[in-house]
Design a protein around this nucleic acid. Structure first.
Lengths: 144, 144
DNA sequence: TTAATATATTTGTCATACTAATTATTATCA
DNA sequence: TGATAATAATTAGTATGACAAATATATTAA
């Protein structure tokens, strides 16, 4: 006997995720951090000194390939990343953080972390852990 | 001292919400329910015998006005809703479920509820309640 | 080695999200 | 009343998300 409450939970989840992203984006804009929240996620994942292929980046960031291609296009246009030919596979690129990209990550990481904190105010460590557990459970329930 | 873990939680939230929507949409398509998840949300909110203005619908469903306008456009094109002049305010429309729209809601509600359940398998009542509480907390932390 | 298959990326299309600006109408106040 | 401000909806522009199909290159198998 299906219950409608699960539709309600789905709605709450969607609405909350949107607001979290919207809040962060507005703060990015206020601070004149000239990237989107999704672009930032890519930069952050590149900042390990390791160049990654687009496929690897897509996997890490949970983006599909067309979306990732377009995000990289924009980051390259902004001069924050560049595509380099993959040694040994001409189908592939490695995405490389430029000097400017590196600088952005270094300079902005603390501010971004601070912005991201806001959503989780008034929650306990236990809440974080439980939320993480529940979200991962949901995610794996829908394994595609 | 800002911590990066909150960026991680934000990422998990976003990723999970996307997968929940994606799963539902795929099931909608498989079942030949010819609306999007977001369009369905609108239909469902109209199915109380009460016509709502677009502003009211936007408020109820958490959509912004431009998005709502376009969703209503599509629903009207599909013959599931129609715009009616608001008696007493010529700026406004009331959105009305057509006969076909009513039928869709009646026919598909149980299947949609069933589809929506899938995400929440293996979670306890307590998990639901806590998740709801936490999501609402986050939402209100970011009051805009 | 050639033919079939698989993989990495891109392109195209539609839907949604957010912002800013516009239009039409209504409400308010000097 | 008449100017100003507020509200409802729309339009336009950019970014992301999902899906399908195309392109180029690699890999595998007959």
């Amino acid at each position: 006997m299906p219950t409608e409450k699960f539709s309600m939970y789905s709605y709450l989840l969607d609405r909350t995720a949107r607001r979290v992203k919207q809040y962060a984006q507005r703060r990015f804009n206020q601070e004149n951090l000239d990237v989107t929240v999704d672009q930032w996620l890519i930069l952050k994942n590149l900042n390990k000194g390791v160049d990654l292929s687009q496929s690897e980046l897509a996997e890490l960031t949970g983006k599909d390939h067309p979306t990732l291609t377009r995000i990289i296009d924009l980051l390259c246009k902004k001069g924050l990343t560049e595509r380099r030919v993959h040694p040994g596979d001409r189908r592939s690129f490695t995405v490389h953080l430029t000097e400017a990209g590196e600088q952005s990550v270094v300079v902005w990481s603390p501010k971004v972390a601070e912005i991201r904190m806001k959503a989780w105010e008034n929650l306990t460590e236990e809440d974080y852990e439980l939320l993480k557990k529940i979200l991962n459970k949901i995610y794996s329930n829908l394994d595609l």
